[in-house]
Simulated scan of single mutants.
Amino acid sequence: MKLVNRNVDKSYQGTVVLIPEEPEDMWHAYNLISEGDSVRSTTIRKVQNETATGSSTSNRVRTTLTIRVESIDFDTQACVLRLKGRNIEENQYVKMGAYHTLDLELNRKFQLCKPEWDTIALERIDMACDVTQSADVAAVVMQEGLAHVCLITSSMTLVRSKIEISIPRKRKGNVQQHEKGLAKFYESVMQGILRHVNFDVVKCVLIASPGFVRDQFFEYMYQQAVNSDIKVLLENKSKFMLVHSSSGFKHSLKEVLQEPAVIAKMSDTKAAGEVKALEQFYTVLQCEPAKAFYGKKHVQMAAEAMAIETLLISDNLFRCKDVSQRKEYVCLVESVRDAGGEVKIFSSMHISGEQLSQLTGIAAILRFPMPELEDSDNDDVGDDSDSD
């Protein structure tokens, strides 16, 4: 993300002008823009002109509009953010108060004005504009006949390619058809890697499968690379890492990212920090349940006691339509930091964020046990789920 201009004063009033430069930036923009914000950008508007004779013609004109956002739709495949709202500035083609949909696209500048900026939104801008934050990882989860080529950025897990090829079974005395099918499958997976993995950015490529599928594929790929002199694969051989997974489906990434060897290899990426924090939470929950809690009510009570060592929170909670609720979560983050705690903001489009969402989207590891929170849990089990 390119920051063109930032004009936010001490009272958290003002505007920022940004240019999304890569797909990940659209995700950051989706997290930044809330209902009620004003967004200014260029757009195409269909204009009807009536001639003196009464006939009408329509043509499309490019104009700059400012709308007050009422709904937000993020198309992850096309990497387009659609903002619908009413026009709030004079324009020769669009009446004041008329509805219009702005499409924010890559390399198209937009200006964002919020009624009040908060620390989470300003942090998001800093993170989006810091190039070092996009330390990426690629992963191929596979089983015989099925593979998913994924890109794991610091914010989300994107399935770039799904490969499905039926492989004939091995038959007694005739294994040729089986081997031909396997070779075709491995070739398709290799082409998927070459097409979707940018080795200039990616630091690590995980190849995961049950059994020996990953080893056979890796052997095939490097045999092909040597025979066909595919330099990009030969030069980046050290970036590949073979690990076990239970299947070739996307959800198997969860266990792959928790492997100690994988965490060590990915240690300088944000994704690894989140996975590690979640793994630690589950361990504490199992061994010392009085030091690990999830759900808004319990976490807030722990924060009031300044007991939180690590707060795990999903960025989904900062996108809630209720402004007062969003402020509550922002205040919670700030109070944990003020008390010397660490805050991990998880992306809801990352595999670890999906896991956290199953735990209400908010969890905490405490500095010291608080068994009284466990007792309050028994008193009103239903109350907490209603508040999230």
Rank of each mutant, 00 (worst) to 15 (best):
131 V>H: 12
131 V>C: 09
131 V>A: 15
132 T>P: 03
132 T>K: 15
132 T>C: 06
133 Q>C: 06
133 Q>E: 13
134 S>R: 14
134 S>M: 09
134 S>C: 09
135 A>C: 09
135 A>N: 14
136 D>H: 06
137 V>M: 12
137 V>N: 04
138 A>I: 04
138 A>C: 07
138 A>N: 02
138 A>R: 01
138 A>E: 07
139 A>W: 00
139 A>L: 01
140 V>L: 00
141 V>Y: 03
141 V>K: 02
141 V>T: 13
143 Q>S: 15
143 Q>P: 10
143 Q>L: 09
144 E>S: 13
144 E>V: 12
144 E>H: 09
144 E>I: 08
144 E>A: 07
145 G>D: 08
145 G>I: 06
145 G>A: 07
145 G>W: 01
145 G>V: 03
145 G>C: 07
145 G>Q: 07
146 L>W: 00
146 L>H: 11
146 L>N: 09
148 H>Q: 15
148 H>V: 02
148 H>F: 05
148 H>G: 04
149 V>W: 01
149 V>E: 03
150 C>I: 00
150 C>R: 00
150 C>F: 01
150 C>L: 10
151 L>I: 14
151 L>Q: 10
151 L>F: 01
152 I>M: 08
152 I>T: 05
153 T>G: 13
154 S>W: 05
154 S>G: 13
154 S>C: 11
154 S>M: 05
154 S>P: 11
155 S>I: 08
155 S>T: 08
156 M>T: 08
156 M>R: 15
157 T>R: 03
158 L>S: 13
158 L>T: 15
158 L>W: 05
158 L>G: 04
158 L>P: 00
159 V>C: 12
159 V>F: 00
159 V>P: 05
160 R>F: 00
160 R>Y: 01
160 R>C: 07
160 R>V: 01
161 S>L: 07
161 S>M: 04
161 S>A: 15
161 S>Y: 02
162 K>N: 15
162 K>W: 02
162 K>I: 12
163 I>R: 06
164 E>P: 01
164 E>V: 13
165 I>V: 10
165 I>M: 11
165 I>Q: 09
165 I>H: 07
166 S>E: 12
166 S>R: 10
166 S>L: 06
167 I>P: 07
168 P>T: 09
168 P>Q: 07
168 P>M: 06
170 K>W: 00
170 K>H: 06
170 K>D: 03
170 K>Y: 02
170 K>T: 08
171 R>E: 14
172 K>P: 05
172 K>R: 11
172 K>N: 12
172 K>S: 11
172 K>M: 09
